[in-house]
Structures are given as structure tokens and as C-alpha cells.
């Protein structure tokens, strides 16, 4: 009886394991097929695996070259790296400073401020999307007007500043929208750190600034890594804001680029390009996850325990 139960247990888990991995493995394997090979053998293993030779390797390399160079995936990738890395640095810096002040200082309006950030956890991005769209137009116009005398003085002629179709604009939204989760998580985290550390550092004559950046932040690294992973995954995969605020193809991030390339590739039946593009879009977060899964799981666990 016991052995049947244990067999069933493993059978269930292994069946689901295959269901999770199979579609991903299929994409990876198909990305190695040339178009002819794809039509001859759409679901089997690619010849790159079964009978590798130079020709099949070239077909595999050609798919990725087509995606990376021919279809601008390299540009989308770089755009994603720029937007997400700058956003992450700002989120971690501003979020940790705010959380530290909220966790370790007493001042008037502190509870109100904390509640204000907490309220942001309830606001769906859909709610602020449309007002932001028009707010960006107004702010762009105001900034253009404000800088016009300076631009004239510098001989730049008419300088138009726009927050639409600009990485800067998207970064502003990403940072602001990520603050509630970041501040909430880090405030809880900073509260758990021993206050003696801070007191000792201040006693040694270090300023509050120095105490924060050279003592508290390094001690709080574990909390920062956890928020960094969650924010990275959320922003790297973000679609809705990108869709509304970036229409210039040269500025698109990976999810947007992938969506438009996929339409063209399906229309042209260019499956080599499409599958290679999917792999390029999937790999960065998968690799990040494999390296940092321990911290990510700990983050979910901490959330689950607090409820």
C-alpha cells in the first residue's frame, strides 16, 4: 500500500514537472531548426541535437542572428536593460532611505506618511494610467516653455521636451509605482535590525548619512536583494505602461518588441525568428531566477508567514 501511494505521489509530481518544462523545452529546441527543417519536422528533436553538423549549426546561428540583429532584439534588450537598471537603482536608493526614516525615526505625521505609502498597494496601475497619459502631455509642455529661454540662449533653437516616448518618463512611473511595495517591505525589514548598530555608529561620531550608507545598508543587504528581485521581475516583464507610453520602435522594451515582432513573424511564417526571439525574451529572467531562487523563495515565505 505504502509503495503504491509513494509511486502515485511521484507520478503526479513528475507529470506536472513535464507539463511545466515541455513547452519551454519545445521553444528552445525549435529555435535551432531552419525553416525547411521546421516544416519537415515541426515537433521532433532538431538535427542540431540528433545529427549535428556545420549546416545545422549555421541554421541555428542564423535564427538568432536574424532575431538579435535583423529584428532589433538587441535594441529592445538594451532598452530594457537601461530602463530597468536605472529604475531599480532609484527604487532601491529612494525606497531604502524612506523605509529607514519610517522605521527608525519619530516625527510628526510619520504614521500618516506610512499609511499613504501603504494605500498605494491597493491602487491598480489601470487607475493611474490614463491620467498619467495626459499629465505627461501637460508636464512636457510646461517643461518646454520653462526651458525655452535657456535653449534660445544656448542657440539650441526650439527645444521640445516630451515625457511621452521617452525612457525618462517611463522610469519616473516605474519608480513611483514601485515605491509602495518597496517601502512597505523594507520598513518591516529595517525594524528587525538591531538598533545598537546605529547607536554605536553615531557614538563613534559618524553622521546619520554615513551611518545609513556605511552601516545600515550593508547590514540590510538581504532585504534589498529580495525587493530587487521582485521589482526586477515585475519591471522587466511590464507591458501595459510600455504599450501606452512608448510607440517609437527604437525605444521599445523587450515585451513590446516581442509582441510586435511576433505579429510580423507569424504573418511571414518566419518561425526560426519567432522561436529565437521567444528564447531571448525568456532567458534573462529564467537565469536570474535560477541564481537567486533561494532569496526569492525566502521573500515569498516571509510574506506568507506575516500573512
Amino acid at each position: 500500500m505504502k509503495s503504491i501511494g509513494s509511486f502515485l505521489k511521484y507520478a503526479l509530481l513528475i507529470v506536472y514537472l513535464i507539463a511545466v518544462v515541455a513547452p519551454m523545452a519545445w521553444v528552445f529546441l525549435t529555435s535551432a531548426k531552419s525553416t525547411q527543417e521546421f516544416y519537415k519536422n515541426p515537433i521532433g528533436l532538431p538535427t542540431l541535437v540528433t545529427a549535428p553538423d556545420t549546416a545545422t549549426f549555421n541554421a541555428f546561428a542564423e535564427n538568432y542572428e536574424k532575431a538579435w540583429v535583423g529584428s532589433n532584439f538587441s535594441r529592445y534588450f538594451v532598452n530594457s536593460v537601461i530602463v530597468v537598471s536605472i529604475s531599480l537603482i532609484l527604487i532601491l536608493l529612494l525606497g531604502s532611505m524612506t523605509a529607514y526614516a519610517l522605521a527608525r525615526f519619530e516625527f510628526r505625521g510619520k504614521n500618516f506618511l506610512y499609511a499613504l505609502f501603504l494605500a498605494g498597494l491597493l491602487i491598480p496601475m489601470q487607475l493611474i494610467l490614463i491620467p498619467l497619459f495626459f499629465q505627461f502631455s501637460d508636464m512636457g509642455e510646461a517643461m518646454t516653455e520653462f526651458f525655452a529661454p535657456l535653449a534660445r540662449a544656448l542657440g539650441l533653437g526650439k527645444l521640445t521636451i516630451s515625457l511621452h516616448d521617452s525612457h525618462f518618463g517611463l522610469i519616473l512611473i516605474y519608480v513611483a509605482a514601485s515605491l509602495p511595495f518597496t517601502v512597505f517591505t523594507l520598513t518591516a525589514f529595517f525594524r528587525t535590525l538591531p538598533n545598537e548598530l546605529r547607536e554605536a555608529s553615531l557614538m563613534d561620531g559618524a553622521s546619520e548619512y554615513r551611518t545609513f550608507f556605511q552601516v545600515m545598508l550593508p547590514v540590510g543587504k538581504a532585504g534589498l536583494v529580495t525587493v530587487a528581485i521582485f521589482n526586477f521581475l515585475g519591471l522587466w516583464n511590464e507591458y501595459l505602461f510600455g504599450l501606452v507610453f512608448l510607440s517609437d520602435d527604437r525605444l521599445k522594451t523587450l515585451p513590446l518588441g516581442l509582441a510586435s515582432i511576433s505579429m510580423q513573424a507569424q504573418y511571414k511564417s518566419d518561425f526560426g525568428l519567432l522561436f529565437a526571439g521567444l528564447v531571448i525574451a525568456m532567458l534573462p529572467t529564467l537565469i536570474t531566477y535560477i541564481f537567486l531562487q533561494e532569496q526569492l523563495t525566502k521573500g515569498i515565505t516571509a510574506g506568507a508567514v506575516k500573512g
Partner: peptide
Amino acid sequence: FFPNVISSVA
């Protein structure tokens, strides 16, 4: 957990 880290578009 793998599928949870892939973008919804992909």
C-alpha cells in the same frame, strides 16, 4: 516556479 518569471507577453 519557472513559468512565473517569464513575461506575460512571452
